[in-house]
């Protein structure tokens, strides 16, 4: 009895789940095409492909070359996740682009082993400010504005 490779198994099951969701979504479509096939045909096709690949992964779990997760530093991943979460929170709460990029920059640098948080916050702030001035001013892109941006 060969060992079952867990990553293959999980990915295979995820693909089968995705296929099921897609097929369910296609089955609940209400608009039908007058001619030929409707919008659901592509969904069913993709669902079939996903299901086939899911089965392929299940086969791979037994007979494939095993794949393994290499060493992962979860603390570093956590810092990047915190950086991205603060970005989303800052934009969602209307805190503006500059504050968002300040936090994003400082926390990401931390994930890569930097310890000087105040210095990185300052660099992130200056970078965010420069990007905001350059892109909002010169290229008239509408980056989200918050309290800091309104002072400019």
């Amino acid at each position: 009895m060969q060992r079952i490779n867990r990553p293959y198994l999980v990915i295979g099951l995820a693909l089968l789940g995705l296929a099921a969701v897609t097929a369910w979504d296609a089955a609940s479509m209400t608009i039908r095409a007058n001619y030929g096939v409707g919008a659901d045909a592509a969904s069913y096709l993709v669902a079939t492909v996903l299901a086939a690949l899911g089965v392929g992964h299940l086969v791979g779990a037994v007979w494939g070359t095993p794949m393994a997760l290499e060493h992962v530093d979860y603390r570093a991943v956590g810092w990047v996740a915190l950086a991205l979460a603060s970005l989303i929170a800052a934009v969602a709460l209307g805190a503006g682009f500059i504050l968002a990029s300040t936090l994003l920059f400082a926390f990401t640098a931390r994930a890569f082993g930097r310890r000087a948080l105040p210095a990185d916050l300052l660099i992130g702030f200056v970078l965010g400010l420069l990007v905001y001035l350059l892109f909002n001013g010169l290229l008239t892109l509408a980056l989200p504005a918050g309290p800091i941006e309104r002072l400019l």
């Binding site: 970005l87 968002a100 990029s101 990401t108 994930a111 990185d120 660099i123 992130g124 965010g128 990007v131």
Partner: peptide
């Protein structure tokens, strides 16, 4: 560290 932090700022 600054490079990747900067990349994320530009991505955002």
């Amino acid at each position: 560290p600054w490079l990747y932090a900067g990349i994320l700022v530009f991505a955002a």
